[in-house]
Computed example of a mutant assay.
Amino acid sequence: MKKVEIFDPALCCPTGVCGPSVDPELTRMASAVFLLQKKGFDISRYNLANEPGKFAENEAVNKILHEKGPDALPVTLLDGEIIALGNYPTNEQLSEWSGINISELKEKKSVKKIDFK
Rank of each mutant, 00 (worst) to 15 (best):
A56S: 01
V22A: 00
E96R: 13
K112H: 12
M1K: 10
L85E: 15
A56F: 02
K38V: 00
A49W: 04
E96K: 12
F116T: 03
E59M: 05
L48V: 06
G99W: 10
A32P: 02
I64L: 05
V61M: 00
D79W: 03
Q37L: 05
P14D: 04
I82K: 14
D42N: 12
P74K: 09
K68Q: 15
K63R: 06
T27N: 05
V111D: 13
K2I: 10
L35K: 12
D71W: 13
N91M: 03
S110I: 10
I43M: 13
Q93K: 11
V33H: 06
L77G: 10
A84F: 11
K39F: 09
S31Y: 14
A10E: 10
Y88P: 00
P89G: 00
K113L: 14
E81S: 03
M29R: 08
Y88Q: 05
K2Y: 02
P89A: 02
P24L: 10
A10S: 13
N87W: 11
I43G: 08
L35G: 08
V75C: 11
V17R: 05
K54H: 09
K3M: 06
K68C: 02
A10K: 06
P9S: 14
V17G: 00
A10Q: 03
I100F: 01
L73E: 01
V111Y: 09
E67V: 09
E51V: 03
S44I: 08
A10P: 08
G16Q: 07
L11P: 03
K39I: 01
K113P: 01
V111I: 06
E92R: 14
G16M: 01
A32M: 11
E67A: 12
T90W: 06
E96C: 01
K38I: 00
I114K: 11
S98L: 00
F7H: 06
L105Q: 09
P52M: 15
D71Q: 14
S21E: 11
P20T: 12
L77M: 11
K106V: 14
Q37G: 15
N47Y: 10
G40I: 10
L35R: 15
S110W: 05
E67C: 01
P24A: 02
F41A: 07
T27H: 01
I64K: 01
T15K: 03
N58L: 05
L85G: 04
D71F: 15
G86M: 10
S98F: 02
E96A: 09
L78Q: 12
N50R: 14
A60C: 03
T27F: 07
F7P: 06
L11E: 01
P89I: 11
